[in-house]
């Protein structure tokens, strides 16, 4: 239990700092790298919560595919790289900061009020629940229709992206 807490707080501090780095960095590529830290930290948190299959999907899809897409986006739009670029932010930084602080404050107050002191039970059944076997059997029995709908959505998004990005 003590080791879990240490790992959680190390990951939480790294994720929080990297998340701020994503939105405050002066260089687009640095932002992408900070995003990798946040995504990898989230995958580690999933493992901490005994959701190993989702953790590996997170590593494969997010860190493997989505980050590469973002790097392609940075490259193709010639987003400013280098430290002289003050053009990444607009002029509503203060308003955005106030809104974000308000959201964080309200959510924290609500969560402390609703779930304060509730513990997660880590037992053998929790570990079995996150295994690929359990997820697969649930996904292909209970959630087979949403699964097929998502595959159609991915196909539509793929075709739509190609149609939009094509030059003609």
């Amino acid at each position: 239990m003590w080791g879990q807490q240490v790992v959680f707080w190390l990951l939480a501090i790294a994720m929080g700092a990297a998340a701020i780095g994503v939105v405050r960095s002066r260089d687009v590529v640095h932002s992408v790298l900070f995003l990798v830290v946040v995504l990898a930290g989230a995958a580690a948190q999933y493992i901490l919560l005994a959701a190993e299959f989702v953790a590996w999907v997170q590593v494969l899809i997010y860190i493997g595919a989505v980050v590469v897409l973002f790097l392609f986006g940075v490259m193709l739009t010639r987003s400013p790289m280098g430290h002289d670029s003050n053009r990444l932010d607009n002029d509503q930084r203060w308003a955005a900061g106030v809104v974000a602080l308000l959201i964080f404050g309200v959510l924290t107050a609500l969560l402390v009020d609703a779930f304060g002191g509730q513990q997660i039970n880590f037992g053998p059944e929790l570990v079995a629940q996150g295994s690929p076997q359990a997820i697969g059997s649930d996904l292909f029995r209970t959630f087979i229709v949403p699964f097929e709908v998502v595959s159609m959505l991915l196909l539509a998004a793929l075709v739509g992206a190609v149609v939009m990005a094509r030059k003609d």
Partner: peptide, 11 residues
């Protein structure tokens, strides 16, 4: 905060 304060679309 990032959605509101960033100007670059990728960000």
């Amino acid at each position: 905060y990032g959605v509101l304060a960033r100007r670059n679309g990728v960000l």
